[in-house]
Design a protein around this nucleic acid. Structure first.
Length: 718
DNA sequence: ACGCCAGAAGTTTTT
DNA sequence: CTTCTGGCGT
């Protein structure tokens, strides 16, 4: 279908259910689609976009916001397939903001060529900010400070606002770090991920004229995964929809899994209060999973207290029961996974199969086992590619071409590959820049005038001039720019020495390919735009359905996807739910989020769902006995089938079922005394006869694991 | 100036 | 157990 071809928009409705049709055909005014897992949400949104376009809404007036780039690309393809063309804007919140801030840089009071700082750039800047605020680095762990700043930005609290509101000493001190950090970013023309959202939200609030223009441009706004939007995203969406009120939010509170990142579930829960005229459509029929899978998942999620009950049903066949498999340890579990997949490989393509886990660290054993069985796999971790040293270096070079004020990037590569500019010289150069109020790059250009640099001065100057030469040709195609830079910088030499077979060369080649693809897709593109675009890749963006391989990913990355066969590993207390949610001071809502995470994983499965756990797991070098996840106990017995990889006579079981020992009188919560550490309370006990261990939180605040056979503790009070 | 080694620290999830 | 950092030796 091409634009202009006469067509009946009702063709778009023929295979939809009544509630789906309601959502698709609703024209003006706010719309909330509460879409349960597997209820055809993506299809509904896509159809809605197509329907709007075919019933008179100019395609360019439609904005669809997705959670990942991958989801955006897929939706765009589907919209094109529905005959709408490339008119609608389909992207993530971050990509939208990056683009709009570039387009309206003057109004946003920003340079167009700003750098986007990733996690590690940001941590470096925070360390520097802590130093500048003259605070003890030990007291201010960068990652903790980062969390505070990130949270503030999500709440649209600028450094100035945060400072004004800081009343106690800790927050006043953090306000100083935040202020210093913001100054650092400003000096470097850099934004972090949260800035993209905060800047855009604040800009829309204060610049009425721009808001008005954007409201007219994006007359129809659709937001997917609304349950995982944070406050800043909420404000952006709201500002864009104030005038026309054509906001369509879709989501599922049961699939909210990003509260830790600032997502605010009340955005979706209170949609009807925010938009009193809102029409609400519920999609509760599941088209994805078998009855067995769906009822197991439904039973699990029903254990959440903070939840509006909701029925999810399916007309799909009953299917096989959900298998729960108890393995001996992580290696055994990985073997089980690999063997099971090998058996299935004859009857279905590997790309049908996915393995989910709670933490990335669990991939190693799985990879080894899959390799042994000769099973092709891909791991969803696009971000990791961009964290490789050679990639970060190459991008740092490109970033200073575009934005020479980007000090984090400049310092990263000023002597890499080595060009005789040592640490001392760099320190002196930075000191000179600070003293004269220049950027480090500006100071480097005049290195010959800095006496302190001595013999390295010509090298520094040569480096700066090399960057300047690149700058003069920076409107060349991205790929050519990249290759030129590799050659001139000496990186190519390093790569040549590493050899054609090396990972480094393969990675850089992949980057070159990415650059070339960008050039082809965007004839009017720019290096700036490409750099900003690739700063926003997510793990799942790298997943390729046609790869013919098993897909491995975290449960978080699995959201929005579906696979005929799903294996979820590590169903153990401490892993899923994660130990953090089990901690004594953990908020109960953390446990509920873990349960939703498990629910999300289970509901990705179409036909076969297998969940496994290990009795022993080695984490950071220590083997721990694991108890099964409480979530397994919450599954319905008649829909699940529990199997054990070993007879119960195995040594470990005997060990664990040993006769009650002298430690059997110990109970959780008892007050005890330790000769070295003093008083404390038992937080957990792991009974293994003589080998019984227990966790103790001492009054000093320290928590310790004690092997009771050796630790002579004394019970003070029952 | 540079590379190596040893010790430390940090391990949830990510746009 | 891994990865990174900082210090030390050349």
């Amino acid at each position: 279908m091409t634009p202009g071809t006469p067509s009946n928009p009702d063709d778009l409705l023929t295979d939809l259910t009544p509630p789906q049709i309601e959502a698709v055909t609703h024209r003006d005014g706010p719309l909330l689609v509460l879409a349960g897992a597997g209820s055809g949400k993506t299809r509904t949104i896509t159809r809605r976009v197509a329907y709007l376009a075919r019933t008179g809404v100019p395609a360019r007036n439609i904005l669809a916001i997705t959670f990942t780039n991958k989801a955006a690309n897929e939706m765009r393809e589907r919209i094109v397939a529905a005959g709408v063309g490339r008119g609608p804007t389909v992207c993530t919140f971050h990509a939208l903001c990056a683009r709009l801030l570039r387009e309206h840089a003057d109004r946003a009071d920003l340079p167009k060529n700003y750098s986007i700082f990733d996690q590690s750039d940001r941590l470096k800047a925070i360390r520097e900010a802590v130093a500048r605020a003259e605070l003890a680095a030990e007291r201010f762990v960068p990652s903790a400070v980062e969390g505070v700043i990130s949270q503030a930005k999500n709440q649209l609290e600028t450094a100035a606002v945060y400072t004004a509101e800081a009343s106690d000493w800790p927050s006043r001190t953090l306000a100083r770090v935040y202020t210093a950090y913001e100054a650092l970013l400003a000096e470097q023309n850099a934004l972090d991920f949260d800035d993209l959202l905060m800047r855009m939200a604040l800009l829309l609030r204060r610049d009425e004229e721009l808001r008005d223009r954007l409201e007219d441009r994006f007359r129809y706004v659709l937001i997917d995964e609304y349950q995982d939007t944070n406050h800043a995203q909420y404000v952006i969406a709201h500002q864009l929809a104030v005038k026309h009120q054509n906001i369509c939010a879709t989501g599922d509170p049961d699939q909210s899994i990003y509260a830790w990142r600032g997502a605010d579930i009340s955005n979706i829960m209170e949609f009807e209060q925010d938009y009193p005229q809102a029409k609400v459509v519920r999609l509760e029929q599941n088209y994805r999973s078998t009855k067995a899978i769906l009822s197991a998942a439904s039973r699990l999620i029903a254990a959440n207290v903070q939840r509006r009950t909701k029925g999810l049903w399916t007309e799909n066949p009953q299917g096989d029961p959900v298998r729960v498999v108890e393995c001996v340890d992580a290696d055994d579990e990985a073997d089980f996974v690999a063997e099971t997949i090998a058996e299935m490989a004859g009857s279905r393509p590997l790309s049908d199969i996915a393995i989910f886990y709670r933490v990335n660290a669990m991939t190693r054993v799985l990879e080894e086992a899959l390799l042994r069985e000769g099973i092709a796999y891909q791991i969803a971790r696009g971000v990791e590619f961009y964290n490789r040293k050679e990639i970060k270096d190459a991008l740092a070079y490109l970033r200073i071409i575009v934005n020479p004020a980007d000090e984090v990037s400049l310092l990263r590569i000023i002597n890499d590959p080595p060009r005789g500019i040592g640490k001392t010289s760099v320190d002196r150069l930075v000191a000179q820049a600070r003293a004269s109020g220049q950027t480090v790059f500006e100071a480097a250009l005049q290195a010959d005038r800095i006496d302190a640099l001595k013999r390295s001065a010509p090298k520094v100057k040569a480096f700066a001039e090399m960057v300047q030469e690149w700058q003069q040709q920076s409107d060349a195609p991205v790929r050519r720019m990249l290759e030129e830079m590799l050659l001139d910088s000496g990186m190519q030499g390093v790569l040549d020495r590493a050899g054609l077979e090396s990972d480094q060369v393969a990675n850089v080649n992949e980057l070159i390919t990415a650059a070339q693809e960008y050039d082809q897709a965007n004839p009017d593109g720019s290096l700036t735009e490409w750099l900003q675009q690739i700063s926003l890749v997510s793990d799942v963006d790298s997943v390729d359905e046609s790869s013919g391989a098993v897909t491995l990913m975290t449960l978080h990355a699995a959201k929005g996807l579906e696979f005929p066969v799903v294996l979820i590993v590590g169903l153990e207390d401490g892993l899923l739910p994660h130990a953090r949610a089990l901690a004594l001071r953990a908020d109960p809502s953390e446990m509920e989020e873990e349960r939703r995470l498990c629910f999300v994983g289970m509901t990705r499965a179409q036909q076969v769902l297998i969940m496994s756990r290990a009795r022993y797991r080695t984490l950071r070098g220590v083997t721990e006995r694991m108890t099964q996840s409480r979530f397994l106990a919450e599954l319905p017995g008649d829909e699940t089938l529990t199997e054990s990889r070993r007879e119960s006579s195995d040594a470990f079981d005997e060990w664990s079922q040993a006769a009650p020992s002298e430690f059997s009188r110990l109970r959780k919560g008892q007050l005890i005394r330790h000769p070295m550490f003093g008083f404390g309370r038992l937080t957990w006990i792991d009974p293994h006869g003589q080998r019984t261990r227990a966790g103790v939180r001492f009054t000093t605040g320290v928590e310790k694991t004690l092997i009771l056979e050796y630790a002579k503790i004394q019970v003070i009070k029952e």
